[in-house]
């Protein structure tokens, strides 16, 4: 489970995320949506211990990430948007190191299984510096899933993946959640979010524009009639942005008046 409570992050006078609260229950895939600079990655970075909240708390499996970091970090796996890995290690060596870090039982057989799944078995003994971006992304995904964590936190997962791997990853996330685990992902790919997310939060410039299931959001924005199948989330997303813009303008007009 993930609990974000009144999370605010400021960089000097700039407020990147403002009073954000949401809970992700086990068994679901939760999507953080938003344009560039919406605050998705800032939120994710707070959840995985890379950015300290200015105020509020972030908890994973009941552990405050900043007060009880080791227990919290044992509970999640993290897939970053850019897969920087140790180029001078082979994939097997890196994954064994991760296995030792998280005390994964039967590491070798698990690594074999994951490499096979992502068609990386032949490359397993090669240095990661020889890998393409997509192959590195696959290794980063395996590193996050190897400990079979109760919570999976993913930042823009599909960057650099080929269509086959992208479909595999979507199915993996879904399967992970279906086994009673928690998956939180950020994306600005609306089709991806629509395909696998049970609940969504739409962010814009650090503020929540809308939250709920797809049906909740459709009801709220009056887009139940939908549009073309598959782009309805896109309609919701832009409707929310328009609402926010209209509200901001009316606030400005009131202030001037």
């Amino acid at each position: 489970m993930i609990q974000v409570s009144h999370y605010t992050k400021r960089y000097g006078r700039h407020e990147a995320v403002s009073d954000l609260s949401f809970t992700v229950q086990p068994g679901g895939v939760f999507g953080l949506l938003g344009s560039n600079g919406a605050g998705k990655t800032t939120t994710i970075r707070a959840l995985v211990g890379l950015t300290r909240p200015t105020s509020g708390t972030v908890r994973v499996q009941g552990f405050d990430v900043w007060a009880d970091p080791v227990k919290a970090k044992e509970a999640f796996g993290y897939i970053p948007d850019r897969p920087y890995l140790y180029g001078k290690l082979t994939a097997r060596e890196l994954l064994r190191f991760v296995g030792q870090l998280y005390r994964v039982p039967n590491t070798d057989s698990e690594i074999d299984r994951w490499l096979e799944l992502f068609r990386l078995t032949e490359y397993g003994n090669e240095l990661i510096e020889t890998y393409s971006h997509g192959m590195r992304q696959k290794v980063a995904i395996v590193a996050a899933l190897l400990p079979d964590p109760p919570v999976l936190i993913v930042d823009e997962p599909m960057v650099g993946l080929d269509p086959h791997a992208a479909r595999q990853v979507r199915e993996l996330f879904r399967a992970h959640a279906d086994r009673g685990r928690t998956v939180l992902l950020t994306t600005h790919s609306l089709p991806l979010a629509e395909a696998i997310c049970d609940r969504l939060v739409v962010l814009d410039r650090g503020k929540v524009l809308g939250e709920g299931t797809m049906d909740d959001l459709r009801t709220r924005t009056g887009t139940e009639a939908g549009g073309v199948h598959g782009d309805s989330l896109e309609r919701i997303f832009f409707r929310l942005l328009e609402e926010e813009l209209a509200e901001a303008e009316s606030r400005k007009a009131e202030a001037v008046g």
Binding site: V48, Y84, V98, L101
Partner: peptide, 13 residues
């Protein structure tokens, strides 16, 4: 280097 995220987000102090 930039691979430090692996340690920073891992269960190690």
């Amino acid at each position: 280097g930039r691979a430090y995220w692996l340690l920073r987000t891992g269960p190690i102090t």
